[in-house]
């Protein structure tokens, strides 16, 4: 049950992320799938790496270039933020904000570095910095707002999963 729920979350996230006109906040678009991965990592620890890998792979397939790069990046970010969340006091909104900003910034840099290593031309440095930092901050704000509803949704999915498992 919970896997169907997670699959639906990825599909809806991907459709929202790629809809045109998309979600624009302060002139920037959040990296929704990366944000979902980071939120999962905060809730479930490094175990969210599978969610990160699958959502990244879906995004890769849609982009059609460097297939596996988003998957690998999101997997690594899920592991990193998952480990961080275990050691930090994630109930504090400021801690969550900085963890998501860090995950988003590192994730984007890793993707750009990977793409550049395989021959993609990088944007100009100031475009890159403003893009990476801007999206990081936006993801941080949206992530803090989404954390509680997301936690409730996750708990509900786990509860339903357990219920179905026990009742057969």
């Amino acid at each position: 049950m919970k896997y169907v729920g997670y699959g639906l979350i990825i599909i809806v996230g991907l459709a929202l992320q790629t809809a045109s006109p998309g979600l624009v906040v302060f002139g920037r678009q959040p990296e929704l799938l990366l944000l979902l991965t980071l939120l999962f990592a905060m809730l479930q620890g490094p175990g969210a790496s599978v969610f990160g890998f699958v959502s990244g792979l879906f995004q890769d397939i849609l982009v059609g270039r460097f297939i596996g790069l988003y998957a690998g990046t999101y997997l690594l970010m899920a592991i990193l933020v998952g480990f961080l969340a275990k050691r930090l006091y994630k109930e504090n909104a400021l801690v969550r904000f900085f963890a998501i900003v860090l995950g988003t910034v590192l994730g984007q840099l890793l993707y750009l570095f990977g793409a550049a290593s395989f021959g993609s031309s990088s944007p100009q440095s100031w475009v890159l910095i403003s893009g990476v930092v801007g999206t990081g901050l936006l993801n941080g704000i949206v992530g803090v707002l989404l954390y509680r509803p997301f936690m409730a949704l996750n708990e509900r999915l786990i509860y339903l999963h357990e219920l179905l498992k026990r009742t057969g």
Binding site: L14, T18, A19, S20, G22, Q29, R65, Y70, G131
Partner: peptide, 11 residues
């Protein structure tokens, strides 16, 4: 009709 855009700001 335009039905979607790139999922990331880098494309």
């Amino acid at each position: 009709e335009v039905i979607g855009r790139s999922p990331s700001q880098w494309e």
